[in-house]
Simulated scan of single mutants.
Amino acid sequence: MVRLHILIIAVLTISSAIIFMPYLVSARLKTNYYAKTCPTVETIVRNVVNQKIQQSRITIAAVLRLFFHDCFVEGCDASVIIASTQGNTAERDHPDNLSLAGDGFDTVIKAKVAIDAIPSCKNKVSCADILAIATRDVIQLAGGPGYQVELGRLDGLTSKASNVEGNLPEPTFNLDRLNTMFASHGLNQADMIALSAAHTLGAAHCAKFSKRLYNFSPKNPVDPTLSKTYAAQLQQTCPKNVDPGTITLLDPTTPNTFDNVYFKNLQKGMGLFTSDQVLFTDKRSKGTVNLWASNSKAFQTAFVNAMIKLGRVGVKTGKNGNIRRDCGAFN
Protein backbone atom coordinates (compact mmCIF):
# COMPACT_ATOMS: atom_id res chain seq x y z
CA MET A 1 0.00 0.00 0.00
CA VAL A 2 2.88 2.45 0.38
CA ARG A 3 6.39 3.31 -0.80
CA LEU A 4 7.43 5.69 1.98
CA HIS A 5 11.07 5.77 3.06
CA ILE A 6 10.79 7.39 6.48
CA LEU A 7 13.18 6.62 9.28
CA ILE A 8 11.59 5.58 12.56
CA ILE A 9 13.35 8.46 14.27
CA ALA A 10 11.76 10.88 11.83
CA VAL A 11 8.34 9.47 12.51
CA LEU A 12 8.87 9.89 16.24
CA THR A 13 10.10 13.44 15.75
CA ILE A 14 6.90 14.51 13.99
CA SER A 15 4.57 12.29 15.97
CA SER A 16 2.61 15.19 17.38
CA ALA A 17 1.79 16.35 13.87
CA ILE A 18 1.07 13.03 12.21
CA ILE A 19 0.82 10.05 14.51
CA PHE A 20 -1.68 11.61 16.86
CA MET A 21 -3.55 13.59 14.25
CA PRO A 22 -6.23 10.90 13.72
CA TYR A 23 -7.19 11.06 17.37
CA LEU A 24 -7.54 14.84 17.29
CA VAL A 25 -9.89 14.84 14.33
CA SER A 26 -11.90 11.90 15.65
CA ALA A 27 -13.53 14.20 18.19
CA ARG A 28 -15.32 15.88 15.26
CA LEU A 29 -16.66 12.60 13.93
CA LYS A 30 -19.68 10.85 15.43
CA THR A 31 -21.82 7.89 14.51
CA ASN A 32 -25.09 9.87 14.53
CA TYR A 33 -23.77 12.84 12.55
CA TYR A 34 -26.66 12.80 10.06
CA ALA A 35 -29.41 11.97 12.57
CA LYS A 36 -31.21 15.26 11.92
CA THR A 37 -30.11 16.21 8.41
CA CYS A 38 -30.40 12.82 6.65
CA PRO A 39 -31.40 10.05 9.07
CA THR A 40 -31.86 7.42 6.34
CA VAL A 41 -28.40 7.86 4.80
CA GLU A 42 -27.04 4.49 5.92
CA THR A 43 -30.12 2.63 4.67
CA ILE A 44 -29.83 4.35 1.29
CA VAL A 45 -26.15 3.46 0.95
CA ARG A 46 -26.79 -0.14 2.02
CA ASN A 47 -29.51 -0.50 -0.64
CA VAL A 48 -27.19 0.79 -3.37
CA VAL A 49 -24.38 -1.49 -2.19
CA ASN A 50 -26.73 -4.48 -2.24
CA GLN A 51 -27.83 -3.67 -5.78
CA LYS A 52 -24.25 -3.26 -6.97
CA ILE A 53 -23.15 -6.57 -5.44
CA GLN A 54 -26.03 -8.35 -7.14
CA GLN A 55 -24.83 -6.89 -10.45
CA SER A 56 -21.14 -7.57 -9.80
CA ARG A 57 -19.49 -9.42 -6.95
CA ILE A 58 -16.31 -7.45 -7.71
CA THR A 59 -17.99 -4.52 -5.94
CA ILE A 60 -17.03 -5.92 -2.53
CA ALA A 61 -13.27 -5.87 -3.03
CA ALA A 62 -13.49 -2.75 -5.22
CA VAL A 63 -15.09 -0.59 -2.53
CA LEU A 64 -12.80 -1.88 0.21
CA ARG A 65 -9.68 -1.20 -1.84
CA LEU A 66 -10.96 2.24 -2.87
CA PHE A 67 -11.30 3.23 0.80
CA PHE A 68 -7.71 2.15 1.56
CA HIS A 69 -6.28 4.00 -1.43
CA ASP A 70 -8.26 7.10 -0.54
CA CYS A 71 -7.29 7.28 3.13
CA PHE A 72 -3.60 6.57 2.59
CA VAL A 73 -2.96 9.40 0.14
CA GLU A 74 -4.80 12.59 1.12
CA GLY A 75 -6.70 11.21 4.08
CA CYS A 76 -10.27 9.89 4.00
CA ASP A 77 -11.68 12.69 1.84
CA ALA A 78 -12.85 10.98 -1.39
CA SER A 79 -10.02 12.66 -3.31
CA VAL A 80 -9.38 9.36 -5.11
CA ILE A 81 -12.81 9.59 -6.78
CA ILE A 82 -12.11 12.90 -8.54
CA ALA A 83 -11.78 12.54 -12.32
CA SER A 84 -8.85 14.15 -14.13
CA THR A 85 -9.39 17.32 -16.12
CA GLN A 86 -7.31 19.04 -18.77
CA GLY A 87 -5.52 21.08 -16.11
CA ASN A 88 -5.13 18.38 -13.48
CA THR A 89 -4.15 14.70 -13.46
CA ALA A 90 -6.02 13.36 -10.46
CA GLU A 91 -5.10 10.61 -8.01
CA ARG A 92 -7.15 7.95 -9.74
CA ASP A 93 -4.99 8.22 -12.87
CA HIS A 94 -1.71 7.54 -11.09
CA PRO A 95 -0.30 4.15 -12.20
CA ASP A 96 -0.77 2.73 -8.70
CA ASN A 97 -4.50 3.47 -8.90
CA LEU A 98 -5.25 2.37 -12.45
CA SER A 99 -6.12 -1.13 -11.23
CA LEU A 100 -8.90 0.18 -8.97
CA ALA A 101 -12.09 -1.44 -10.26
CA GLY A 102 -14.75 0.89 -11.63
CA ASP A 103 -17.41 -0.79 -9.48
CA GLY A 104 -15.98 0.93 -6.41
CA PHE A 105 -16.29 4.40 -7.91
CA ASP A 106 -19.72 3.58 -9.35
CA THR A 107 -21.03 2.48 -5.95
CA VAL A 108 -20.18 5.79 -4.29
CA ILE A 109 -21.45 7.88 -7.21
CA LYS A 110 -24.77 6.01 -7.36
CA ALA A 111 -25.23 6.24 -3.61
CA LYS A 112 -24.65 10.00 -3.78
CA VAL A 113 -27.32 10.34 -6.48
CA ALA A 114 -29.78 8.28 -4.44
CA ILE A 115 -29.14 10.34 -1.31
CA ASP A 116 -29.46 13.69 -3.11
CA ALA A 117 -32.75 12.55 -4.67
CA ILE A 118 -34.27 13.04 -1.22
CA PRO A 119 -34.87 16.81 -0.82
CA SER A 120 -34.00 16.90 2.89
CA CYS A 121 -30.71 15.09 2.25
CA LYS A 122 -29.60 16.95 -0.87
CA ASN A 123 -26.07 18.34 -0.58
CA LYS A 124 -25.92 17.30 3.08
CA VAL A 125 -23.82 14.11 2.86
CA SER A 126 -20.17 14.02 1.78
CA CYS A 127 -18.77 11.53 -0.70
CA ALA A 128 -16.08 10.69 1.88
CA ASP A 129 -18.74 9.58 4.36
CA ILE A 130 -20.59 7.62 1.68
CA LEU A 131 -17.38 5.71 0.90
CA ALA A 132 -16.82 4.99 4.60
CA ILE A 133 -20.37 3.65 5.00
CA ALA A 134 -20.18 1.59 1.82
CA THR A 135 -16.90 0.06 2.98
CA ARG A 136 -18.46 -1.11 6.22
CA ASP A 137 -21.39 -2.53 4.24
CA VAL A 138 -19.32 -4.56 1.76
CA ILE A 139 -17.30 -6.05 4.61
CA GLN A 140 -20.43 -7.09 6.47
CA LEU A 141 -22.20 -8.38 3.35
CA ALA A 142 -19.15 -10.56 2.63
CA GLY A 143 -19.47 -12.19 6.04
CA GLY A 144 -17.28 -9.83 8.02
CA PRO A 145 -18.06 -7.85 11.17
CA GLY A 146 -20.48 -4.94 11.30
CA TYR A 147 -19.64 -1.75 13.14
CA GLN A 148 -20.86 1.80 13.61
CA VAL A 149 -19.19 4.20 11.18
CA GLU A 150 -17.98 7.53 12.48
CA LEU A 151 -19.25 10.30 10.20
CA GLY A 152 -18.75 14.00 9.60
CA ARG A 153 -15.93 14.06 7.04
CA LEU A 154 -15.83 16.70 4.34
CA ASP A 155 -14.65 16.05 0.80
CA GLY A 156 -11.14 17.15 -0.07
CA LEU A 157 -10.29 20.11 -2.27
CA THR A 158 -7.18 18.56 -3.82
CA SER A 159 -6.56 15.45 -5.93
CA LYS A 160 -3.21 15.17 -7.69
CA ALA A 161 -1.57 12.08 -9.14
CA SER A 162 1.78 13.35 -7.89
CA ASN A 163 0.55 13.01 -4.29
CA VAL A 164 0.11 9.26 -4.73
CA GLU A 165 3.79 8.56 -5.34
CA GLY A 166 5.32 6.84 -2.32
CA ASN A 167 2.10 6.80 -0.35
CA LEU A 168 0.63 3.39 -1.09
CA PRO A 169 2.02 0.10 0.27
CA GLU A 170 3.97 -2.05 -2.16
CA PRO A 171 3.68 -5.86 -2.45
CA THR A 172 7.45 -6.12 -1.89
CA PHE A 173 7.50 -4.36 1.49
CA ASN A 174 9.11 -6.02 4.49
CA LEU A 175 7.80 -5.63 8.05
CA ASP A 176 9.86 -2.55 8.85
CA ARG A 177 8.62 -0.66 5.80
CA LEU A 178 5.03 -1.69 6.46
CA ASN A 179 5.25 -0.58 10.09
CA THR A 180 6.85 2.74 9.17
CA MET A 181 4.19 3.55 6.63
CA PHE A 182 1.26 2.62 8.83
CA ALA A 183 2.79 4.44 11.81
CA SER A 184 2.80 7.64 9.76
CA HIS A 185 -1.00 7.38 9.78
CA GLY A 186 -1.33 6.63 13.48
CA LEU A 187 -1.66 2.88 12.97
CA ASN A 188 0.44 0.38 14.92
CA GLN A 189 1.71 -3.05 13.92
CA ALA A 190 -1.42 -4.85 15.11
CA ASP A 191 -3.56 -2.43 13.06
CA MET A 192 -1.37 -3.07 10.02
CA ILE A 193 -1.67 -6.85 10.33
CA ALA A 194 -5.44 -6.65 10.82
CA LEU A 195 -5.90 -4.34 7.83
CA SER A 196 -3.68 -6.56 5.67
CA ALA A 197 -6.39 -9.19 6.03
CA ALA A 198 -8.43 -7.17 3.55
CA HIS A 199 -6.49 -9.38 1.12
CA THR A 200 -8.93 -12.11 2.00
CA LEU A 201 -10.97 -10.51 -0.81
CA GLY A 202 -10.15 -9.53 -4.37
CA ALA A 203 -7.46 -10.36 -6.90
CA ALA A 204 -4.08 -9.11 -8.12
CA HIS A 205 -2.29 -8.85 -11.44
CA CYS A 206 0.45 -11.41 -12.03
CA ALA A 207 3.06 -8.69 -12.50
CA LYS A 208 2.68 -7.69 -8.85
CA PHE A 209 4.20 -10.96 -7.60
CA SER A 210 5.76 -12.74 -10.61
CA LYS A 211 9.30 -12.11 -9.35
CA ARG A 212 8.54 -14.52 -6.50
CA LEU A 213 7.83 -17.24 -9.06
CA TYR A 214 10.72 -16.86 -11.51
CA ASN A 215 13.37 -14.32 -10.49
CA PHE A 216 13.48 -14.31 -6.72
CA SER A 217 17.26 -14.83 -6.45
CA PRO A 218 20.09 -16.57 -8.35
CA LYS A 219 20.08 -19.37 -5.80
CA ASN A 220 16.30 -19.64 -5.44
CA PRO A 221 14.35 -18.69 -8.59
CA VAL A 222 11.15 -19.34 -6.60
CA ASP A 223 10.67 -17.59 -3.26
CA PRO A 224 11.31 -20.32 -0.66
CA THR A 225 8.71 -18.83 1.69
CA LEU A 226 6.04 -19.86 -0.83
CA SER A 227 4.47 -23.29 -0.48
CA LYS A 228 5.78 -25.42 -3.38
CA THR A 229 2.26 -26.54 -4.22
CA TYR A 230 0.95 -22.99 -4.15
CA ALA A 231 3.89 -21.72 -6.24
CA ALA A 232 3.17 -24.39 -8.87
CA GLN A 233 -0.49 -23.33 -8.97
CA LEU A 234 0.51 -19.69 -9.41
CA GLN A 235 2.92 -20.59 -12.21
CA GLN A 236 0.07 -22.25 -14.08
CA THR A 237 -2.11 -19.15 -13.73
CA CYS A 238 0.77 -16.72 -14.28
CA PRO A 239 3.31 -18.27 -16.68
CA LYS A 240 6.31 -16.29 -17.88
CA ASN A 241 5.39 -13.53 -20.34
CA VAL A 242 1.75 -13.77 -19.28
CA ASP A 243 -0.83 -11.25 -20.53
CA PRO A 244 -0.44 -8.15 -18.28
CA GLY A 245 -4.18 -8.21 -17.61
CA THR A 246 -4.15 -11.70 -16.08
CA ILE A 247 -5.15 -11.80 -12.43
CA THR A 248 -5.31 -14.37 -9.65
CA LEU A 249 -7.19 -14.48 -6.38
CA LEU A 250 -5.56 -13.06 -3.28
CA ASP A 251 -7.21 -15.77 -1.17
CA PRO A 252 -7.63 -18.99 -3.18
CA THR A 253 -9.39 -20.76 -0.31
CA THR A 254 -12.42 -18.55 0.47
CA PRO A 255 -12.13 -15.74 -2.10
CA ASN A 256 -15.64 -14.34 -1.66
CA THR A 257 -15.80 -14.39 2.13
CA PHE A 258 -14.35 -11.95 4.62
CA ASP A 259 -12.79 -14.25 7.22
CA ASN A 260 -9.59 -15.17 9.05
CA VAL A 261 -8.57 -17.73 6.41
CA TYR A 262 -6.09 -15.10 5.21
CA PHE A 263 -3.99 -15.86 8.29
CA LYS A 264 -4.38 -19.62 7.88
CA ASN A 265 -3.10 -19.23 4.34
CA LEU A 266 -0.01 -17.41 5.62
CA GLN A 267 0.70 -20.32 7.95
CA LYS A 268 0.70 -22.60 4.88
CA GLY A 269 3.02 -20.39 2.81
CA MET A 270 0.14 -19.08 0.70
CA GLY A 271 0.58 -15.34 1.06
CA LEU A 272 0.41 -13.94 -2.47
CA PHE A 273 2.58 -10.88 -1.88
CA THR A 274 5.89 -10.65 -0.04
CA SER A 275 4.16 -8.08 2.17
CA ASP A 276 1.58 -10.74 3.09
CA GLN A 277 3.90 -13.69 3.75
CA VAL A 278 6.37 -11.60 5.75
CA LEU A 279 3.72 -11.24 8.45
CA PHE A 280 4.25 -14.94 9.19
CA THR A 281 7.95 -15.32 8.40
CA ASP A 282 8.99 -12.38 10.59
CA LYS A 283 8.95 -13.51 14.22
CA ARG A 284 7.86 -10.05 15.37
CA SER A 285 4.46 -10.47 13.71
CA LYS A 286 4.15 -14.26 13.56
CA GLY A 287 2.47 -14.53 16.96
CA THR A 288 -0.33 -12.20 15.91
CA VAL A 289 -0.89 -14.18 12.71
CA ASN A 290 -1.10 -17.41 14.69
CA LEU A 291 -3.50 -15.90 17.21
CA TRP A 292 -5.90 -14.56 14.61
CA ALA A 293 -5.68 -17.72 12.52
CA SER A 294 -7.07 -19.62 15.51
CA ASN A 295 -9.37 -16.95 16.94
CA SER A 296 -11.76 -15.37 14.43
CA LYS A 297 -13.49 -13.22 17.04
CA ALA A 298 -10.22 -11.68 18.22
CA PHE A 299 -9.30 -10.89 14.62
CA GLN A 300 -12.65 -9.29 13.85
CA THR A 301 -12.42 -7.10 16.95
CA ALA A 302 -8.93 -5.96 15.95
CA PHE A 303 -10.02 -5.34 12.37
CA VAL A 304 -12.96 -3.16 13.41
CA ASN A 305 -10.73 -1.11 15.71
CA ALA A 306 -8.18 -0.67 12.93
CA MET A 307 -10.83 0.35 10.40
CA ILE A 308 -12.21 2.98 12.75
CA LYS A 309 -8.71 4.37 13.28
CA LEU A 310 -8.05 4.34 9.54
CA GLY A 311 -11.30 6.23 8.95
CA ARG A 312 -9.98 9.10 11.08
CA VAL A 313 -6.86 9.69 9.02
CA GLY A 314 -6.57 13.10 7.39
CA VAL A 315 -10.23 14.00 7.90
CA LYS A 316 -11.13 17.38 6.36
CA THR A 317 -13.21 19.83 8.38
CA GLY A 318 -14.10 23.52 8.19
CA LYS A 319 -12.49 25.42 5.33
CA ASN A 320 -10.33 22.42 4.42
CA GLY A 321 -13.18 20.68 2.63
CA ASN A 322 -16.77 20.82 1.41
CA ILE A 323 -19.62 18.57 0.33
CA ARG A 324 -19.36 17.84 -3.38
CA ARG A 325 -22.42 17.95 -5.57
CA ASP A 326 -20.75 15.39 -7.84
CA CYS A 327 -18.33 12.91 -6.22
CA GLY A 328 -16.18 12.82 -9.34
CA ALA A 329 -15.67 16.59 -9.67
CA PHE A 330 -14.86 19.58 -7.51
CA ASN A 331 -17.70 22.06 -6.91
Results as ranks from 00 to 15, higher is better:
Asp326Ile: 09
Ile109His: 09
Ala142Ser: 15
Ile133Ala: 04
Lys110Gly: 04
Val49Pro: 07
Leu213Ser: 01
Leu151Ala: 01
Val11Ala: 13
Gly318Arg: 11
Ala134Thr: 10
Ser126Asp: 01
Gln54Pro: 00
Lys110Ser: 13
Asp282Ala: 14
Ala114Gly: 06
His205Ala: 09
Ile308Cys: 04
Asp155Ser: 02
Gly311Cys: 09
Ala197Pro: 09
Asn50Ala: 05
Ile8Asn: 14
Asp103Ile: 00
Asp155Ile: 03
Ser99His: 05
Val45Thr: 03
Tyr147Val: 05
Val80Pro: 03
Thr248His: 07
Tyr147Met: 06
Ala101Ile: 08
Ala231Ser: 12
Thr274Cys: 00
Val149Pro: 02
Gly102Tyr: 07
Asp129Pro: 01
Gln51Arg: 13
Ser126Met: 01
Asn88Phe: 11
Gly146Trp: 02
Asn295Leu: 02
Asp276His: 11
Lys240Pro: 05
Val63Arg: 03
Gly186Ser: 02
Ser184Val: 10
Lys112Trp: 01
Asp176Cys: 04
Val41Arg: 01
Ala203Cys: 08
Phe67Tyr: 15
Arg212Ala: 05
Thr85Gln: 13
Ala114Pro: 04
Lys112Met: 05
Val304Ile: 14
Pro255Ile: 09
Ala111Tyr: 02
Phe299His: 13
Thr13Tyr: 10
Ile139Glu: 02
Leu24Arg: 05
Gln148Pro: 04
Val164Gly: 09
Gly143Phe: 00
Lys319Trp: 05
Arg57Tyr: 11
Asp191Arg: 00
Lys122Thr: 09
Met181Thr: 10
Ala78Glu: 05
Gln54His: 11
Ala117His: 14
Lys268Cys: 03
Asp106Met: 12
Gly318Lys: 11
Ser196Leu: 13
Ser294Gln: 15
Pro255Gln: 12
Ile323Ser: 01
Thr59Met: 11
Ala197Ser: 15
Ala10Met: 12
Glu165Leu: 11
Asn88His: 10
Thr31Asp: 05
Arg92Leu: 08
Arg28Thr: 07
Tyr262Met: 03
Glu74Asn: 15
Lys36Arg: 12
Leu201Trp: 13
Leu151Glu: 02
Phe263Asn: 06
Pro255Ser: 12
Asn241Ala: 12
Ala101Arg: 13
Arg57Phe: 09
Gln86Thr: 13
Ile18Ala: 04
Val63Glu: 04
Ser84Ile: 10
Gln267Arg: 08
Gln140Ala: 15
Val113Ile: 15
Thr158Asp: 04
Gly152Trp: 01
Lys286Arg: 15
Leu250Val: 11
Phe68Met: 15
Ala231Cys: 06
Lys240Tyr: 08
Glu91Val: 12
Asn305Trp: 00
Thr172Asp: 11
Ser26Val: 00
Gly321Ala: 07
Gln148Met: 10
Gly287Thr: 10
Gln148Cys: 02
Asn260Leu: 05
Asp93Gly: 02
Val289Cys: 06
Asp276Val: 07
Met192Phe: 14
Asn260Gln: 12
Ala231Ile: 06
Gln54Trp: 05
Lys240Leu: 09
Tyr23Thr: 03
Leu175His: 04
Ala132Lys: 02
Ala27Gly: 01
Leu24Lys: 01
Ser217Arg: 08
Thr248Asp: 09
Asn322Gly: 12
Leu12Glu: 15
Leu213Met: 01
Thr13Met: 10
Gly314Ile: 12
Ile115His: 07
Ile58Lys: 15
Gln267Asn: 08
Thr253Lys: 14
Gln235Ser: 08
Phe67Met: 14
Leu250Gly: 10
Asp77Leu: 04
Leu201Ser: 07
Ala83Glu: 15
